[in-house]
Design a protein around this nucleic acid. Structure first.
Lengths: 255, 255
DNA sequence: CGAACGCTTGAGAGGCATCAAGAAACGTGG
DNA sequence: CCACGTTTCTTGATGCCTCTCAAGCGTTCG
């Protein structure tokens, strides 16, 4: 079902960025060209491996991807989740080799484009660069929230923060009024993301359910009163508005 | 003592960025103008408060700063440490109001400049923007390392990772051959940074000391065999080289 | 010299990991 | 469509790591 960000053929990336600024025709055109090639992966496939050269960046067209590091003891740690419309690799663009492995959590379609095409973007579309920069700061803030959750909170609260974060991010492209979260992640993967064992994740789910904060149907989760849960765990959704006051003007548009 | 990044009057920011690219005269000039005003703070002063408007970004000229969030229960969580040459606020540039409080860990001198001056940088110095972007990805990677440490590791290993991270970052501007780390942080603050109580930090220090991995003299710490400790906790220093292949060319230099 | 702060160490409690085993869901091939 | 194997979920029991509480000590600074 609609793990793609929308039913039309509009680019997910354009849809996501349009949420923040009105793209000029030439900006849109540039972004479309970044998504001309597609590649598909099946669940559990590695999209990029640790230490592989990363000549490309890619946009997630449909499906979920997660990046992870493999610990010495065989366990793995999930660094980040990526949803349709997200640009993967932007946050690692300073590295010649991938510091993480990227794996498909579901069936996935991505649109890769070469890092080198960033040169054109940097030279000719400073406003887009500023927007990417601003989006990177959102990602950064999400990371801080997760660090705080893992560092200071109980299992129950960590899980609550993760669910609220996922909901906040999916609402950007997925529409504001979807009551259910469709989590394609096993409880083990969730545990890897928030520093818990699978057993503790399961008990945290049960606790939230018993308290009436969430409802579950298989891997579907409904957060009953998101605002009240967010207040309880001191979570704030920073994904809706960004400060654009410092953006340069859009490049003048050719015909 | 030399908490400033160097004894000369050369800008810390220029010193740090020069480590990565050869700055053109006009790039250097621009960066110097960003550091024309200075402001001093004393230990424990708040440099910017949570929710304060952030019209400025600033460069740390001397001293250490830490950013933190205050939890509902009164505890605080340290999100990031900033050293001389670091640009504070770049990673929060997408927010109109500061999502964190910034406090001085030592006596501090900063050089603030208005966010709005970024417009010029974005329009006219794409290569500098690319460098800032790349540095942001280093910060991001450091964050992932810390997340992994907090999520998966014992108290001892978390402390080891933190010490190795601080060492790696200080070596960029501070020279490669300084055997001692001069930590101006109380054990309580260190605990706030890696999700431990002060008591556990103390015991982790003692354990590393008893094992001969570190030596201590007050708040001075010497890591006895950094490479071997890094291997043990699976830490890699990513701060020395970055991938610049995708950088645009420097803007043509005026006279 | 006294007060405040930070460091150190001990004892006890609690939360999460680990181990283990059974139930449910899923996928696959006959 | 069913049977079987695999994966995932669920729950209980036990143990360990870190937190909390507490007290003593050293240092710094007014």
């Amino acid at each position: 079902m609609s793990e793609t960000c929308n039913a039309t053929n509009e680019s997910c990336l354009v849809a996501k960025l349009s949420h923040y600024i009105d793209l000029t025709p030439s900006e849109s055109r540039l972004l479309e060209t970044l998504q001309e090639n597609e590649r598909d992966f099946r669940r559990r496939d590695a999209v990029f491996r640790l230490d592989a050269e990363m000549p490309d960046i890619f946009v997630v067209k449909s499906g979920w991807i997660y990046s992870h590091a493999d610990n010495l003891d065989g366990s793995e740690y999930i660094a980040m989740l990526y949803f349709p419309g997200d640009v993967v690799g932007i946050s690692q663009v300073g590295f010649a080799r991938s510091p993480l492995t990227y794996s498909a959590a579901t069936e996935v379609t991505i649109c890769p484009f070469p890092k080198l095409s960033l040169q054109v973007v940097f030279r000719e579309h400073p406003r887009l660069v500023a927007l990417f920069f601003a989006l990177a700061t959102l990602e950064h803030a999400g990371m801080i929230d997760r660090l705080r959750a893992i560092g200071c909170m109980s299992a129950r609260d960590r899980l609550a923060v993760l669910l609220l974060q996922i909901r906040a991010r999916l609402r950007i492209t997925g529409g504001r009024d979807q009551p259910f979260l469709d989590l394609p992640l096993s409880q083990e993967l969730i545990g890897n993301a928030i520093g818990l064992s699978m057993v503790s994740v399961n008990r945290a789910f049960r606790q939230l359910e018993d308290e009436g904060r969430i409802r579950r149907e298989g891997r579907r989760v409904e957060i009953v009163a998101p605002e009240s849960l967010a207040a309880e765990v001191d979570f704030s959704d920073r994904h809706y508005a960004i400060d654009k006051s410092w953006f340069p003007a859009a490049a003048h548009d050719g015909p």
